[in-house]
Each structure stands twice: as structure tokens, then as C-alpha cells.
């Protein structure tokens, strides 16, 4: 007996919930050959605004969690991704039109990067921080602290790996994230949202928007409550304009990257979204 396929409704992921776009808009996601795949929500500037509000609300708790705890939470995401490998492989095969082997390689690499970055949470401060020598009876210590809310334009040519490569490093230091997924391949992003929702990541720490980066990016770049902007996937946008409007509110900005080694795992991506806090403390009289 044949049965009707149950088509999945792909929605946004904001504040730990899966709302439709405030605008009510959707757009068709198609295979490389043009066949209909799914309807995805087309986020508006107001969805971006709501996502920033959620990210800001979640920031205190996430940044305040111990580094060890953040590492556990990020590692847990990798565990759950591992359990849903087949689903991600299917989605990537369908949307990118690649072979199962290539899709499997992409999912494996994405999971490995989560694990790699999860390990850094309680270690990067030792590398990025410092005990500074000063001429006086003081300890002088520099420590990296999270910048705040990071808006990310995810790499547009990759379903899962590009998204993970941009989101994971921003989370390590304790930032919260608003990410605009790949416009052409948004399905894995929404499925990643489902993984995040069922893991231990507090709602609002990661907010995923699908739709047109060209439409949303300028609102995130100019948003006064966004502290940093990762333009890694904004190569096809007017990204110089985005950088200019980000400068109005002194955001930290990363430039677009392209090619196979875009957003490669690096300590630099973690430290890019930190602020160095230096404290003086008297040495006790010994």
C-alpha cells in the first residue's frame, strides 16, 4: 500500500521556539535540478529584531555559565548530531544534489568541528589571556570575555558544514548568535535548530533565520544591540556597505570568505568575538 508523504514544515528558530515568519512569508526550496523540495519561512526584519531580543535575553545566562559547562553543552550537540546523521545526510543529498558519500563527509566534518570547538571552551582563555608583568605589587591579568550578540551571515554554498563552522566558534566564548542560514540550502539549518532545541542549549543562545540574507543583513548590521557581525557568507552581498553600517555602532566585524577553506576551524574565530578585560589586583603583603 502506498502512503502519502508527510511533508515537513520548516520554520524559524527564535528564542528556543519554532515560529513562522512574522510576515507570514515562505519561499520554495528546490533541488539543484529545480524540483520542489520544501517551503521554508522567509524571515523579515522583524523576525531578525525578535531574534536579537532573544539573543540578548539569553546572553547573561550563557556567558555566565562556567566554561566547563559550556563545553559539555556544545559537546552534547555533537552527540545529538551524531544520532541524526541519516536525516542530515538525506537533506544534504536532496538539496545540494551531491552523492551520499560527499554528504556523509560533510556531516562528519560538521560533527567533528563541534567537538573540536567544544574542547576549546575551557582552554582558549589560557591562550588568549595573560598574566601581565607590571612594575608594582600587583597581579595584572587579561582575560577574554564574550562580546555579546553576534550576527552571522552563514556561508551560502554549504548546508550544514558552513553553518556549523560559523556558529560554533562564536558560542565558545559565551556569545549568543543570530544566524542567517544559506538561502538556497536552509533545510539543514532548521534541522540543526531542532537538534539545539532538544539539547541542553538554553533557548535564545542560537537563533536561526532562513530567507534572504540580502534583505535581513542590513538590519542586523545596523542594529545597535548587535555587538559583532560575521560576514563569512556575505560575499555576494554589498558587504562593504554592511561593514560601514556596522562601524556606526563599533561592531566587531569579520569579512567574507569563500572557497573550500572558508571558515576553517581556528582559534582566531573564537577570539575574534571576545573583549579583553584587564584587572589589577593587589598582591598580599607577604
Amino acid at each position: 500500500m502506498t502512503r502519502l508523504a508527510v511533508a515537513k514544515t520548516y520554520k524559524l528558530y527564535i528564542g528556543g521556539k519554532f515560529p513562522r515568519s512574522e510576515s507570514g512569508r515562505t519561499y520554495e526550496v528546490v533541488t539543484p535540478k529545480g524540483a520542489f523540495l520544501a517551503n521554508a519561512a522567509k524571515a523579515s526584519r522583524k523576525d531578525a529584531r525578535d531574534a536579537v531580543v532573544s539573543a540578548r535575553a539569553a546572553f547573561g545566562g550563557w556567558a555566565g555559565a562556567t566554561a566547563y559547562n559550556r563545553g559539555q553543552v556544545l559537546y552534547r550537540i555533537a552527540e545529538l548530531l551524531e544520532g541524526r546523521r541519516a536525516q542530515f545526510v538525506d537533506e544534504i543529498v536532496a538539496s545540494e544534489g551531491v552523492s551520499t558519500a560527499a554528504a556523509t563527509a560533510q556531516v562528519d566534518e560538521a560533527i567533528d568541528r563541534w567537538v573540536w570547538y567544544a574542547g576549546w571552551t575551557d582552554k582558549f582563555a589560557q591562550v588568549a589571556g595573560n598574566a601581565n608583568p607590571v612594575a608594582g605589587p600587583y597581579f595584572n591579568i587579561s582575560v577574554p570575555e564574550p562580546t555579546g550578540v553576534v550576527a552571522i551571515i552563514a556561508p551560502q554554498s554549504s548546508s550544514l558544514l558552513g553553518l556549523v563552522s560559523a556558529v560554533a566558534p562564536a558560542l565558545v566564548a559565551g556569545n549568543t548568535v543570530v544566524v542567517v542560514a544559506s538561502e538556497a540550502f536552509p533545510l539543514s539549518a532548521v534541522s540543526l535548530g531542532e537538534v539545539l532545541a532538544t539539547s541542553d542549549v538554553p533557548g535564545g543562545v542560537v537563533n536561526i533565520l532562513t530567507g534572504s540574507p540580502a534583505e535581513i543583513a542590513s538590519w542586523l548590521a545596523s542594529h545597535a544591540d548587535v555587538n559583532a557581525l560575521d560576514l563569512v557568507g556575505a560575499g555576494n552581498l554589498e558587504w562593504v556597505d554592511l561593514q560601514i553600517s556596522a562601524a556606526e555602532t563599533l561592531k566587531r566585524v569579520l569579512s567574507p570568505e569563500s572557497g573550500a577553506d572558508a571558515a576553517m576551524p581556528s582559534l582566531g574565530r573564537i577570539i575574534a568575538f571576545t573583549e579583553t578585560k584587564t584587572v589589577w589586583h593587589t598582591k598580599s603583603m607577604l
Binding site: 529584531r49 536579537v52 540578548r56 538590519w219 545596523s222 542594529h223 545597535a224 544591540d225 548587535v226
Partner: peptide
């Protein structure tokens, strides 16, 4: 009000 005046979203820091 700031959003209307400047055309971009404002934040609690302002």
C-alpha cells in the same frame, strides 16, 4: 522613538 528617528534598531545600551 530612536528607531523611527535613525532608521535602525536601537538597543538597551542607548
Amino acid at each position: 522613538r530612536q528607531k523611527l528617528a535613525t532608521g535602525h534598531y536601537s538597543g538597551a545600551d542607548y
